[in-house]
Design a protein around this nucleic acid. Structure first.
Lengths: 147, 147
DNA sequence: AGCTACCTTAACGTGAGGGTAGATATTCCA
DNA sequence: TGGAATATCTACCCTCACGTTAAGGTAGCT
């Protein structure tokens, strides 16, 4: 069956990215749709939509768009299935591994970072709650009696 | 004993904020040092440094600086100890509670958000690792034998 | 043909700082 | 007390990842 092509609005709904963001990704070379309608509407293949969804999942890691672009490039050169022999060999293969490992380490570090931030955020939310409780306890004349 | 006053560099070291960030917070009215030296150097009291450290802990929640400013204002009007009677009463008190609750709800929502992002990030890091392993397995000629 | 929903490019705005220059302050130490 | 070394000042422009607005074109239906 022929590929299902999506226009930008549908892609936005699917991925949770804004129209502006999707266009921006094209502007800076992260991902351009392979086709357009005669009138100029962007048409995305399912594979392209999946790539955008991947970018969406990457965002919390805080990689800049240039890094995202590079990582997509690396991922592209990866063999599809573990069964297949590597599409690359020798030096190219080595470099691929190196780049991938770099991203992995970086991603791991940023996960740790996120965990720390989450901690801080939860602490903060908790302390807000405590303040709020104190405030409510201190003004019983405004609250309903407990009976 | 007289207050210990810190200059911006020391404050930066204490809080983990950059000099530029601390100055920026002053520019947009989040927190200005109460004093300067005759020559114009910023001097922060310990209380001010604590406020900056609080802002630092709030950052992961992604509140904009205007919100931070407002929240600091609310926190300022809070009674210090649960023992003390509320410094405010009636309407003002009600409004304080309302604003504080708003921030609490918002903070909680953003924590949930952060948890989601962390999930996505960890998934992504894991998948990078998987790809990496596959890549290494597929090229045993480059790895050391297992014996 | 007209309507509506969706899409286009282009240009400017924003938030939260980063970086630099060039001038001034403060401190340390001989 | 006089430099030298270090810290800080203001003012300005830069960046990144989009948001916003304006003005207009397209797809598809009736």
């Amino acid at each position: 069956m022929a590929q299902k092509l999506m226009r930008i609005g549908e892609v936005a709904e699917w991925t949770g990215l804004s129209l502006r963001t999707i266009r921006h990704y094209e502007e800076v070379g992260v991902l351009a749709p392979s086709r357009r309608t005669a009138g100029g509407f962007r048409l995305y293949t399912e594979a392209e939509v999946r790539r955008l969804a991947l970018v969406r999942r990457m965002r919390p890691l805080g990689f800049c768009l240039e890094d995202v672009r590079e990582l997509l490039g690396v991922l592209d050169r990866l063999p599809e299935q573990s069964g297949a022999l590597p599409a690359t060999s020798g030096e190219a293969h080595e470099e691929l591994v190196a780049r991938l490992r770099k991203f992995w380490l970086e991603a791991d570090a940023r996960c740790a970072d996120l965990r720390g931030q989450l901690q801080a955020a939860e602490d903060f939310a908790r302390s807000l709650h405590v303040q709020l409780s104190r405030l409510l306890d201190a003004a019983p004349e405004e609250t309903e009696p407990t009976w």
